[in-house]
Design a protein around this nucleic acid. Structure first.
Length: 1022
RNA sequence: GGGCGAUUAGCUCAGUCGGCUAGAGCGCCACGUUUACACCGUGGAUGUCGGGGGUUCGAGUCCCUCAUCGCCCACCA
């Protein structure tokens, strides 16, 4: 690939679009992204957290993937055999939900209208579309994934890994089927896990009902009062519970409250006191009745459940808390998790009153066919008619909603599949405790351990059509003898008895079972599919070919680093660890890096639903992929989430329009600047869609864009000055002071950047590079090279150091900003093919495969760096005087500097640069330098700077400035005197610190006195 | 209810092991088209380091406490 021929034609502003396309194709063509196992080199492996094929990538993905690509490119340059394994996740519920919603919107059809096969076909079509889009987005970002290895969680290799895992777990008795209360999503008609449920506070009611006691004897209550927020569930009640020892329970509650009260802050005391009073009162208001009811429960008395006229027992159970409500609680085992436990303990019937679609079933009697909401109204009304409605309170209710469909969850008793977690969880906990898996930042290890520590069994079945179908066949009315005969000699089939139903559960390893496998019987396949996380959990080894012991698995596993966000540490990371240990016998990765979360300007998470999401492609179009990457890495600090206000960019006038909570959910908007109308992501109607769409961007990427433009122009300058460049070695003795300085800084920064990247300190790495490139390289080195480049004798060395420094800087920046660095690298190759100082060598054909720079310790020179710091300080002083005295830049000034001889020697060498960079000529250096009659004065730690202002002086400006300076110095002196006057400080602080303070005080006093002298001289003139 | 994180300039954020006058970018003010760059340069202004207490010779930094915000987990007939 040839570099642009005419350097003069390089634009003054970096144009990102064309190089991005060109160099990505170049890298692909050269096969740089591809990795093959190679025992002679160490591997460095990352598996991508596979994005869901539900939709396009958002800014969170851009962050996640930028950080991964930075690591991969960094390690590749360091000589590792770097593999970044890409792919996507089928995301069972989420994807099916999206496609179903669309089906309903566009065709008014449900999945049942289509049938399983057709729906799955449609979801595949959706998957193909979005996978392509997602992979396209990753490519636009510059991701150096090994695309030849791209996987999808439903690929045959992944399916095989799923089958093997399921089979092995099942064989070992770690997978079982059981009736459990699940979070039932009535819209999607599937169970969702606890992790897929969110709670929302809604206005609701608390209804109090009376259930009649059957045949009450005199002295007994005729009714028992219970309360509920879900009246319709009473149709499934199978008992009412009262505490077996209400007196003790009440006393216990009371003592706990007293304990709490004794420790409560004053603010909370009144409320707690009131609560306590009420509780004490219960001893007289509630206790006698509860004791009576307890006795009735013990003697097996029954209640009449109204509306369905079912006799239900009064039972004694600890779940009923005498301090709450009436002290009695209705028990609905099939629709409440706690009641379910009571049901199990007291051997109560479990009556399911719901159909999968959320309507009531035959068990609800007359209410059959009604929706939950309709049934609720009817039940309340009917009970009211019967005089059994005791009370209604308004109350805020935390209502469970499905994360997927956003509809309310109904607790529902259903047959589900589970993985026993006891031992698996323990192994995954041990891996983190023993640091076989290191979580960075380490604070996240705690949540991981706490969550696994609960060892709750993992519900893995989903009543969906999109996913890995559970490889289980039901054999009903079959003897084990028949099974043994049918599958004789096959070790790829195992079966377990289902204790709850009269049937066998048969699993097969790879091949599906023939429904006719048992003569005269029919094997029926389980319809449910597996939880998405079941296949995601296998991702690090399934993508490498497991269960085969492939060369890839042997070489790349365990992978090196997992880069992900904190939301899925439990759902995904923990499960990868335990399946990795179970299947492969080793952890899936050595380190897990948890990165920040991107929030909008209001501190809220970004999501498509809220309308505050950002498409990375919008940002890439506006700022370029490199700016996106650098900007995100710049913001990736250890503790802070990334807060980012977003704006619409008007497609007509280009102005930015602040995104508010109101305007961000509208399909169309009018630009407040130019009045032009545009559409947003919400546009659905044809006339909205016809409008130009506004990109959603953020000003926070301007910093990165400006920086890269600065880099571009530094490169332009370098390239324009390399005519006649020779790749000859540079001898140490040929180096100028500024050369040694920039090389020292370069070496220091190289070491710091390497360390920062190794520790995932992205923001630090970016800051180091930003400051070096802008402040050291551009503002000083480049400026200082201008004169040298004009002169024949100094030009060659200046060219070589310039080219070398740019070369190293580009390599340090490349992992973060791959495109612009490649563009400049190639241009530089055209002008300076051989680079390096002591031993120049031909540059690599691509920066991607160039070696990572080594920090040359012998180049680091603290003396030179200190000398430059002083030079920069003096320069700043001279510029400040020029500025405050309003002396035009082109008017030459003369200055003298009073300082110690060694300081003078140091600075005298830089005389030419004071002239070229500040237009200032030195007339005197050293201890004998004295202030001219009219002068401006700047007092520095190591020297007094006087600028001769004959004919120029602005007395008012100068004296104002000096007075301010005088006050500042006096203040500092007072503070220091106080500190040093403190006996304790002098005695107890380290000698060094005290000595430093003394010297600082002496210096300050000198500075003050010289400022005062200048001030009085000035007053003499005024 | 339990846990984690945050609170530093108008805004968004750095601040290492407790130690010189607490920094950056944006924004603001003034000046400037100087032969890489106005997506630029030079200079300037701006701080109760959330409040209170403690440890220490010394606290933005460590400890306690309160407040506010965000997130995670659990629970709420």
């Amino acid at each position: 690939m040839s570099a642009t021929t005419s350097l003069e034609s390089l634009p003054k502003q970096y144009q990102h679009r064309e190089p991005e396309r060109r160099w990505y194709q170049f890298w692909l063509d050269r096969g740089y992204f591809h990795s093959e196992p190679d025992p002679t080199r160490p591997p460095y492996t990352i598996v991508i957290p596979p994005p869901n094929v539900t939709g396009a990538l958002h800014l969170g993905h851009a962050l996640n993937n930028s950080l991964q690509d930075i690591l991969i490119r960094f390690k590749r340059m360091q000589g590792f055999n770097a593999l970044w394994m890409p792919g996507t996740d089928h995301a069972g519920i989420a994807t099916q939900a999206v496609v179903e919603r669309r089906l309903l919107e566009e065709e008014k059809k449900s999945r049942h209208d289509l049938g399983r096969e057709e729906l799955v076909r449609r979801i595949w079509a959706w998957k193909d579309e979005y996978e392509e889009r997602i992979l396209g987005q990753l490519k636009r970002m510059g991701s150096s994934c090994d695309w030849e290895r791209t996987r999808f969680t439903l690929d045959p290799v992944c399916a095989r890994a799923v089958r093997h895992t399921f089979f092995n777990l099942f064989k070992q008795g770690l997978i079982y089927r059981g009736k459990r209360l699940v979070n039932w999503d009535t819209y999607l008609q599937t169970a969702v896990s606890d992790d897929e449920v969110f709670h929302e506070t809604v206005a609701g009611h608390f209804w109090h009902f009376r259930y009649p006691v059957i045949d009450p004897v005199p002295g007994e209550p005729t009714h028992v009062t219970i309360a509920t927020t879900r009246p319709e569930t009473m149709l499934g009640d199978t008992a009412v519970a009262v505490h077996p020892d209400p007196q003790a329970a009440l006393a216990e509650a009371e003592s706990q409250l007293r304990e709490k009260l004794s420790q409560a802050p004053d603010k909370q005391r009144p409320a707690l006191k009131a609560e306590l009073t009420a509780l004490v009162e219960r001893r007289t208001t509630h206790l006698p009745l509860l004791l009576k009811l307890r006795d009735m429960a013990r003697s097996g008395r029954m209640l009449m459940l109204p509306l369905v006229d079912r006799e239900i027992p009064l039972v004694a159970d600890e779940w009923a808390r005498p301090e709450l409500g009436s002290g009695c609680v209705k028990i609905t085992p099939a629709h409440d998790p706690n009641d379910y436990e009571v049901g199990l303990r007291r051997s109560l019937p479990m009556i399911n009153i719901l159909n999968p679609d959320g309507t009531l079933n035959a068990n609800a009697g007359a209410y059959r066919g009604l929706t939950v909401a309709a049934a609720r109204q009817r039940v309340v009304a009917d009970l009211d008619k019967l005089g059994l409605l005791a009370d209604v309170e308004a109350r805020e209710i935390e209502l469970a909603h499905s994360d997927r469909s956003k509809t309310p969850i109904e607790p529902y008793l259903a047959d589900q599949w589970f993985v026993k977690m006891e031992d698996l969880a323990e192994s995954a906990m041990q891996a983190v405790r023993a640091q076989s898996v290191r979580i960075v930042p380490s604070r996240y290890a705690r949540g991981y351990l706490d969550w696994l520590g609960e060892k709750r069994d993992w519900p893995i079945s989903r009543q969906l059509w999109w996913g890995h179908q559970i490889p289980i066949w039901y054999a009903r009315q079959v003897s084990e003898q028949e099974l043994k005969q049918a599958f004789a000699g096959r070790d790829d089939v195992v079966w377990h008895r289902d204790p709850e139903h009269d049937q066998w559960l048969v699993s097969a390893l790879e091949e599906d079972l023939d429904p006719q496998a048992i003569p005269g019987r029919r094997l029926e396949r389980e319809q449910d599919v597996l939880d998405t996380w079941f296949s995601s959990a296998l991702w690090p080894h399934s993508t490498l070919g497991w269960p085969e012991r492939t060369a890839e698995l042997e070489y790349y596993y365990p992978t090196s680093t997992l880069v992900t966000n904190r939301d899925i540490i439990t759902l995904w990371v923990a499960r990868m660890v335990l399946t990795g240990l179970f299947n492969v016998g080793d952890v899936p990765f050595r380190e897990v890096y948890i990165h920040p979360k991107i929030l909008d300007g209001y501190g809220e998470g970004m999501s498509k639903m809220k309308g505050n999401g950002v498409d990375p492609l919008d940002l890439i179009e506006k700022f370029g992929a490199d700016s996106l990457r650098f900007g995100l890495a710049w913001l990736t600090t250890e503790t802070q989430d990334i807060r980012m206000a977003v704006e619409f960019e008007c497609p007509h006038c280009g102005k930015l329009i602040e995104q508010t909570k109101k305007n961000r959910v509208l399909p169309r908007l009018a630009c407040p600047h130019c009045r032009g109308e545009f559409s947003t992501q919400w546009a659905r109607k044809p006339d909205d869609l016809a409008l130009p769409r506004a990109a959603v961007v953020s000003e926070r990427f301007e910093l990165a864009r400006n920086f890269l433009n600065k880099l571009w122009n530094a490169a332009r300058f370098t390239l324009l000055n390399l005519e006649g460049y020779s790749g000859e070695p540079v001898a140490e003795s040929e180096l100028a002071v500024e050369d040694r300085w920039i090389l020292s800084r370069l070496s220091t920064v190289t070491g710091q950047v390497t360390e920062a990247l190794d520790a995932y300190r992205y923001a630090d790495a970016m800051r180091l590079l930003y400051e070096f490139a802008w402040d050291d390289f551009c503002s000083f080195y480049l400026e200082m090279s201008k004169g040298r480049l004009q002169q024949a004798e100094s030009r060659p060395v200046a060219q070589r150091v310039l080219a070398h420094t740019l070369d190293v800087l580009l390599r340090l920046l490349h992992p973060a900003v791959p495109f612009i660095t490649e563009e400049i690298w190639q241009l530089l190759a055209g002008a300076a093919r051989h680079r390096g100082l002591a031993e120049p060598a031909e540059a690599a054909e691509s920066i991607m495969i160039a070696p990572w720079p080594a920090a040359e310790r012998e180049r680091q020179d603290a003396t030179i760096e200190a000398r430059f710091a002083l030079f920069q300080e003096v320069l700043r002083g001279l510029r400040e005087i020029r500025s405050r005295q309003n002396i035009p830049p082109k008017t030459p000034i003369r200055f003298s500097a009073r300082c110690r001889p060694e300081t003078a020697d140091l600075l005298r060498a830089m005389e030419g640069y004071f002239e070229s960079m500040a237009g200032a000529r030195a007339v005197a250096w050293g201890e004998e330098a004295s202030p001219p009659a009219t002068h401006a004065h700047v007092s520095l730690e190591q020297l007094e700077l006087y600028v001769d202002l004959a004919g120029l002086i602005d007395v008012a400006a100068e004296s104002a400035r000096l007075e301010k300076e005088q006050a500042r110095l006096a203040g500092q002196i007072t503070a220091k005197e106080k500190k040093l006057g403190n006996q304790a400080f002098v005695e107890r602080a380290p000698r060094e610190v005290v000595e430093n303070e003394r010297q600082a005080l002496a210096g300050l006093r000198e500075q003050l006195s010289s400022v005062q002298k200048s001030l009085s001289a000035l007053r003499g003139q005024g």
